[in-house]
């Protein structure tokens, strides 16, 4: 038996919104550690890893480790039936091919029971080694989102260059080119507005903007984003989910042919 209860139901809605444009179907892994997912986009260029730790839920019961295959698009449709302030309970029994979502209004005067069919999904987990990154940039997530949106109106790729001067995001397209530099700014009184750059080596990497822009759908989950870069390695774009875990996106870089 598996049952989890999340008082802040809007969080699950935001998590699914942050995944649904990247992944069609995915196995959610349930264990005593929590509720997690690892999935690639259909072209295997990007990977998303979600972790929601059991301690972050008001109630979490998972008798044995198992996976639930779900269509993310269908899950998003089901979660549309929940209001933002609803409490969400997810339940599944051993051996059944359905999952139940229960949405309770805070005053308990409305309860919705939604049943969704599970799917068999064949997917391998990839081993992601713990790596030391050459450069780590922490910046406001809204700032990163607006940079990606702005640059994607000009070009299809973004080159991220980290140096002592700061982090520069640049693009080039048919109509012209643009670059935006953010300098370290840790003196601000509000930590969520800080930009902090930890650099061991200067790094320059180029990525497809369409994927990076999809990652920024997670902006509402965290006020800060962490971008970790090493030469010839996938970038990691991480949004922490307060008291619960994180959503991490990995994107393979482009190389000169």
């Amino acid at each position: 038996m598996f049952e989890l209860r999340l008082v802040q139901g809007s969080l699950l809605k935001r998590v699914i919104d942050a995944i649904k444009d990247l992944v069609n179907d995915a196995n959610f892994d349930c264990s005593s550690t929590g509720f997690s997912l690892q999935a690639m986009d259909s072209s295997h260029v990007a990977l998303v890893a979600l972790l929601l730790r059991s301690e972050g839920f008001e109630h979490f019961r998972c008798d044995r480790t198992f996976s639930m295959g779900m269509s993310i698009a269908n899950m998003a449709k089901m979660l549309k039936c929940a209001s933002n302030d609803d409490i969400i309970t997810i339940k599944a029994d051993d051996g059944t091919d359905t999952v139940t979502f229960m949405f309770e209004s805070p005053s308990q005067d409305k309860i919705s029971d939604i049943e969704m069919k599970l799917m068999d999904i064949d997917s391998d987990h990839l081993g992601i080694p713990d790596a030391e990154y050459e450069a780590i940039v922490r910046m406001p997530s809204t700032e990163f989102g607006s940079i990606c949106t702005s640059l994607s109106t000009i070009g299809d790729t973004v080159t991220i260059a980290v140096s002592k001067q700061g982090v520069t995001f640049s693009t080039k397209g048919d109509i012209g080119s643009g670059n935006i530099t953010c300098r370290q700014n840790s003196s601000t009184e509000k930590p969520e507005e800080a930009t902090i750059i930890e650099m061991k080596e200067p790094v320059v990497l180029t990525f497809a903007l369409k994927y990076i822009t999809t990652f920024t759908k997670a902006t509402s989950l965290s006020s800060q984003v962490t971008i970790s870069l090493s030469s010839d390695m996938p970038v990691v774009v991480e949004y922490k989910i307060a008291e619960m875990g994180h959503i991490r996106y990995y994107l393979a870089p482009k190389i000169e042919e």
Binding site: V45, L47, G127, P129, A208, A252, K254, E256
Partner: peptide, 14 residues
């Protein structure tokens, strides 16, 4: 011309 790499080039199946 730039070539897009895939994730499996970096991370192997567990």
């Amino acid at each position: 011309q730039q070539k897009q790499q895939v994730i499996s080039r970096f991370f192997a199946p567990k």
